[in-house]
Amino acid sequence: MNATSRLHQEETQFRIILAATYPFFLVAALAQRLRPGRSPNPTAPPSGLSARRSVFGEAKAMAVSAIPFAFMG
């Protein structure tokens, strides 16, 4: 199998896993957002302004950061 084919296969697997796990992370992001007394978003970029990511962006960021663990090993 050549490198291009393998890269395409891994990209396809990544997208499938992202689509399968995104709803779970969306629920987690919503729960995190609605939880009273929560601390500010630790994944938000540090800045003087309170740059707040949307719930959908937060869910995608959580999924994208967790999925590579499925490809390890």
Rank of each mutant, 00 (worst) to 15 (best):
P40W: 03
P46V: 03
Q9C: 02
A31R: 04
Q32W: 15
L34K: 02
R15M: 12
Q32D: 15
A51R: 06
G57I: 09
M1V: 11
F71N: 01
P68F: 01
G48I: 05
F24K: 07
G57H: 14
P40N: 02
N41V: 03
A29Y: 01
R15P: 01
H8A: 14
R35P: 04
R38I: 02
R53Q: 14
P23E: 02
A51M: 07
N2A: 06
V55P: 06
R33L: 08
Q13Y: 03
I17M: 13
G48P: 01
T4E: 14
A19V: 00
R33S: 10
Y22K: 06
A51I: 13
P46W: 03
S5D: 12
S50D: 15
M1C: 09
S39F: 05
A66K: 07
R35E: 11
Q13G: 01
M72E: 14
S50R: 13
H8G: 00
A51D: 06
H8V: 04
P36G: 05
V27I: 11
F24G: 07
G37D: 03
A19T: 03
P45K: 15
F24M: 12
F56N: 11
S50K: 14
A28Y: 12
A51N: 06
S5V: 12
Q9I: 07
F71R: 08
R53T: 09
F24H: 12
A61T: 01
V64T: 13
E11Q: 09
S54V: 10
A31T: 06
P45F: 12
P36K: 01
L30A: 11
A29N: 02
F14G: 02
E11S: 10
L26C: 09
F24P: 00
I16Q: 13
A19K: 12
F71M: 08
R15T: 04
A28E: 10
A44G: 02
Q13S: 13
P40Q: 01
T4Q: 14
A51T: 04
A70Y: 08
